[in-house]
Design a protein around this nucleic acid. Structure first.
Lengths: 111, 111
DNA sequence: CGGCACACCTTGATAATCGAGGTATCGCCG
DNA sequence: CGGCGATACCTCGATTATCAAGGTGTGCCG
């Protein structure tokens, strides 16, 4: 059952912000967490993930810090900034507004 | 209240197919219908609409025919083909799968 | 020691969107 | 009658995100 690739467009940033809402995480594990929590409905390619992380960092919504994982591997740990938290709230609301609109159209019964 | 531009990515084709599910319509009115039914949550730019119509036509999911509107203007009327109807079902289901995944992530309470 | 999962990164191709422009017609109002 | 706004079509260039596919290196386990 293939993931709905392409649809991710524009949503990935929001998902990443959300992932960091509770605790800092390193890149690779952000991807795994999203896939897991979405019930495998979403698939996060690394070629999309890392550019997304740079985008968010450049905008000041997340910050990176080198550290060590549980398994003693060198990892880059990302945390949400206060601005990122504000932004997350905005984007979640925008998503709901948008998804609601789409749902109204797609579930519309009758011409 | 600005529309959530950009997010449309990939969804527009599905919305257009859905619009034609009940009756044929001409391009301009497809855009207005989507905006209206979505409660203005979605905004359909003409620069996105017409390319989308050509895409769908090229794929054989809709067909175009020149005609006259109620107001006697020259219009291009689009209808869903049987293949387009099948495709609509697939895409609606994909959207729901995807939107569900996103919802699970964005509404996830607790790390 | 070899292989696999982890964990990072980069590049080029593809593709969809948007904004802004353009044309033409119809109906309405002054 | 003149003009303007809404209807209705189309096109172009710039932007941007995604993906696939490549690459590096390390820790762990058999």
């Amino acid at each position: 059952m293939p993931a709905d690739t392409e649809l991710l467009h524009g949503t990935l940033d929001t998902l990443v912000l959300k992932t960091l809402a509770w605790a800092p995480r390193h890149g690779y594990s952000i991807a795994r967490w999203i896939e897991s929590v979405s019930g495998q409905a979403l698939q996060v390619e690394e070629g999309s993930l890392y550019p997304a992380l740079y985008r968010l960092e450049r905008k000041g919504w997340i910050v990176a810090e080198w550290g060590l994982s549980d398994t003693k591997r060198r990892v880059k740990i990302y945390s949400l900034t206060p601005e990122g938290r504000d932004r997350l709230a905005v984007e979640v609301q925008q998503w709901q507004h948008f998804a609601n609109g789409v749902a109204r159209v797609l579930l519309h019964a009758e011409g």
